[in-house]
Amino acid sequence: MQLLFLGTGAGMPSKQRNTTATVLKLLDERGTFWMFDCGEATQHQILHTTLKPRKLEKLFITHLHGDHIYGLPGLLGSRSFLGGNEPLTIYGPKGIKAWIELTLATSKTYVKYPLTINEIEEGIIFEDDQFIVEAKPLEHVIPCFGYKVTQKTLSPELLIEKTDALGVPRGPLLRQLKEGKDVELADGRVVKSAEVTGKPKEGFQVTILGDTKFCENSILLSNGSDIVVHEGTFDLETADLARLYGHSTIVDAANVCKEANAKHLIINHISARFMPSDMKEMLAQVEHYDFPVYVADDFAEFDWSDRTLVKRGN
């Protein structure tokens, strides 16, 4: 799994940051990617990556402010123009369905793929045999959600050196063993799955929060997460503005992560008032916390492998 930040700015684009769009790359897990919010010109940002719009499987909108949705019509249309026939499901607050349908109808944009738009409420909004996605309302100036993605426990690793030693032939029997089934060999011997597999591996948990003040639901949704993506529109010196406009400081975000016993924090949704040279001072305000804190730039990518987070790119 990787997290790729296509846009990390707040309110409007700047020379340093485009508006909000975060990609959860699940190419290894399911051959697709999911997106959280879709600010203006998100499809332009995609052009600078290896992402293919037809691989976009799910799109989660936190709230209906323009810097989180103005990129939707263009991306939906381009996905169709590029010949993508794969279904796409959009999740978001009440009003997202009417806005998308009116925008597409008014501009005479007809998508050629199955498009499902789900207006959500608090609770589990998606579950299959691999993932659970839970949503909770946050505290912003308009209705806004945060999302927690939980990967279910992974199948145990097949210890191929043990199956080779026992003479298990390559093929369907190995798959059965990996699935937890005991198998009988041609000579009558029974090989038990537990003897040739490792322990099941825990999946990852990623919480991606929309715009919000410090609030209890942010903590509940982030509880135990491996990674929390939290807005940090302001810093300590501008905390009064954060309260006024329903936003958080980087310290608010770190306190959410601390209270939730989360393991890594990535800050996005940075006000255009902050220049790249200000990031060092912003990070200094949270350097005393005992978990890693990153400020994401556009096109920064974070790789999650073997329960370790590695930052790549910007």
Rank of each mutant, 00 (worst) to 15 (best):
F5E: 01
A10C: 10
T20A: 07
T20W: 01
T22H: 05
L27P: 07
C38K: 00
Q43N: 11
Q45C: 05
H48G: 13
K52Y: 01
R54D: 15
E57C: 09
K58E: 09
L59E: 03
H65E: 15
Y70T: 06
L72I: 14
G74P: 05
G74M: 00
S80C: 08
F81L: 14
G83W: 10
N85K: 15
E86K: 07
L88W: 01
K94W: 10
G95T: 04
I96E: 01
A105W: 02
Y113V: 05
L115P: 10
I120M: 07
I132W: 03
V133E: 02
L138S: 11
H140P: 03
G146A: 11
G146F: 00
G146T: 04
G146I: 02
K148R: 15
V149Y: 10
Q151K: 10
L154R: 15
L154T: 13
P169N: 00
R170G: 03
L174S: 10
E179Q: 10
K181N: 15
L185F: 06
G188S: 08
R189C: 09
V196T: 05
G203C: 02
G203M: 02
Q205I: 13
T207L: 08
T207N: 07
D211Q: 13
L221V: 03
N223Y: 09
G224I: 04
G224D: 12
G224N: 08
D226S: 00
V229P: 03
F234S: 06
D235R: 07
D235I: 00
L244N: 14
Y245H: 14
Y245Q: 07
G246S: 12
G246P: 04
I250P: 03
I250L: 08
V251F: 02
D252W: 06
A254T: 05
A254V: 06
L265E: 01
N268M: 06
H269C: 11
S271E: 01
F274T: 03
F274Y: 15
P276E: 00
S277P: 04
M279V: 12
M279H: 11
Q285K: 11
F299Q: 13
F299H: 14
E301Q: 05
T308L: 07
L309C: 11
